[in-house]
Amino acid sequence: MLPKVNQFLFLQVASSDEEEAAVEYKSRIADENDNELLIEIPVLEGTGRYKRLFLGDELSAYYLSSDGVKHYFNSHVLGLKEDVVRLVRIQKPDPESITKVQRRHFLRVGSELEIAIKLSAHVRFVGITDDVGGGGISFLCDGKWPIKSGTELECWLLVPYRNGSIEHAQFKAEVVRVKKMETGRNQVMAKYASITDGERQKIIRYCFERQLDVRKR
């Protein structure tokens, strides 16, 4: 069952700041088309504070059915539309992806990008990502490096865009899990521990472009 025009949506927005990521905003569906929901600018109830959304922002949303059951889905921002009031265009969920159980995984895309890592003042090396997203990354590196759960890494990710430009996204990441591969390499899964909104937007823009490319195949 898809959400309908005039229904309220309750949203959380992916952020490297755990407190901000936990904040719930309220919006209303103002219009829809085949692929999009057009929603009002989300607001924090009780304060009247609006949440500014950007292209590629990842959303965890739910709405209430007539019998009061919460229906969850994940989405992302496609852009803005200037109407009588400014509306936010978000991806309409696939009906099969809507669930009664919240799943806080945000958009991640499989991609082999070069990542430079500083482990300590004297230890630096290069790895290759196997997926990247707005909330964290996973990469492969030589198994000789002393990385374990909880290790903090200083990272520089090479981010190429469809128009041929290249950016470097800088951030600090905390290792969540390390998996030893049969090849002797390690697969390192990490979440962003410290990243500015600007640097995170570089990564989300890449994920958004990558997802569009995959859909066109």
Rank of each mutant, 00 (worst) to 15 (best):
P95G: 05
E112T: 03
Y206H: 15
K118V: 08
I90R: 10
Y50A: 15
V159T: 11
K81G: 01
K144A: 07
H105C: 00
F54P: 00
D17Q: 08
V188M: 10
S120C: 07
L119D: 01
D57H: 09
Y50W: 08
S75G: 03
R104V: 01
R52F: 09
E114N: 08
L119N: 08
E182T: 02
A193F: 06
G46K: 10
R124K: 15
L55Y: 12
V214T: 08
D142A: 15
R108A: 05
D131C: 12
E36G: 03
R52K: 13
G143L: 07
R103S: 05
D213N: 10
M189S: 14
E36Y: 11
R49L: 15
S165P: 00
G198Y: 06
K216H: 04
V188L: 06
E82M: 14
S65Y: 01
E45F: 04
L80E: 14
G198E: 14
G46L: 11
G110T: 04
G150H: 05
P160N: 09
D213G: 06
L113H: 06
G136D: 06
P160H: 08
E114W: 00
V178P: 07
N74A: 12
V188Q: 05
K144L: 10
V69D: 04
R104T: 02
T129A: 14
L9E: 09
Y206W: 04
E36H: 11
M1D: 11
D197E: 12
Q91G: 02
A61V: 08
S66Q: 15
S27D: 06
R177M: 11
R162K: 11
I90D: 10
L59N: 11
N186P: 00
